[in-house]
């Protein structure tokens, strides 16, 4: 089974430590959600995996081989970032043609089919596309390139609700049809929570959670009720955050709930976004 192993990776930009001794493993045929607040280090990590930046410490291995400046390995990854590395003056059609030149498995027919679904103007230059359509074109290329590991950094930037829905649908269909590993880094957690299987949460350059979505959500719950009751319930438990409204409080707890919940308190599951917010609040 192929996997990307990130060993003790750190990255400094001058005096700023963007990543601090990250250890992770990305295995094949999974959809990962790479979540984190602004400036947490998600894009830096993706840039390191995809050979755009060099680590200050540590190494990244693919099947035991260092990925740095290794074409045969990098050809198995495809990364679309917020910042486009495509030539601005290139037309959409030409982009598909040249991507096919570099990636023989690039499915041009599928790319054109997706372009029609999304309404992409093929003869336009990339620089003249709107923000949304730039994201769409990048997504289409990433979905058509047919490599084992595909990384998306903010794939739904600028997309309207219809296009976002279509993107998720197409991604799932592609995943079912030709399984690969997809890593999605996004701020719209509520929307992607239905499609991701594994969750990686980065906070201040460190990984604070790296587990399956089910395990993460199973291991957290919310308890609501009068403030005093909630406070006494929470005593001795791993409290990660709370919201107060008047005399009522909602507390977010890591762990399994007690078998008997005191009367007056209401137990509910935590959704991924709420859990993320509570885990990453300063």
């Amino acid at each position: 089974m192929s996997s990307i192993v990130i060993e003790n990776i750190s990255k400094n930009f001058g005096s700023v430590k963007a990543l601090n001794h990250i250890n992770l493993e990305l295995t094949e045929h999974k959809i990962y959600g790479l979540l984190g607040r602004n400036g947490a280090g998600k894009t830096t990590l993706l840039n390191l995996i995809n050979n755009r930046l060099f680590p200050s410490e540590g190494q990244i291995l693919f099947d035991g081989i260092n990925i740095e400046n290794n074409s045969s390995i990098q050809n198995q990854f495809y990364f679309i970032g917020e910042k486009s590395l495509y030539p601005d003056s290139m037309k959409v059609k030409a982009l598909y043609k040249y991507t096919k030149m570099f990636h023989p498995d690039f499915d041009e027919t599928y790319a054109y089919k997706l372009s029609e679904m999304f309404g992409v103007p093929l003869k336009k230059k990339l620089s003249s596309l709107s923000t949304g359509y730039k994201s769409i074109v990048k997504n289409i290329v990433a979905l058509s390139v047919n490599v084992p590991f595909v990384f998306f950094d903010e794939p739904i930037l600028g997309l309207d609700a219809n296009h976002r829905e279509l993107f998720y649908k197409v991604l799932i269909e592609k995943y079912i049809d030709q399984p690969a590993t997809y890593v999605l880094s996004t701020h719209l957690i509520e929307e992607v929570s239905n499609i991701i299987e594994e969750v990686i949460i980065i906070k201040n350059g460190e990984v604070i959670k790296n587990e399956s979505k089910e395990a993460l959500l199973d291991n957290g719950y919310s308890i609501s009720g009068p403030t005093g009751l909630v406070e006494s319930y929470c005593s001795g438990k791993e409290l990660i955050g709370f919201d107060t409204l008047g005399g009522l409080r909602s507390a977010y707890i890591v762990g399994k709930p007690d078998e008997n919940i005191p009367q007056g308190l209401e137990l509910s599951g935590m959704d991924l976004q709420k859990l993320f917010i509570q885990l990453t609040n300063i």
Partner: peptide, 16 residues
């Protein structure tokens, strides 16, 4: 500059 970025996008090594 433009070619370098496009080649990196397509997984090429700096030596190549």
């Amino acid at each position: 500059g433009e070619n370098f970025r496009f080649f990196i996008q397509n997984g090429k090594s700096r030596k190549e």
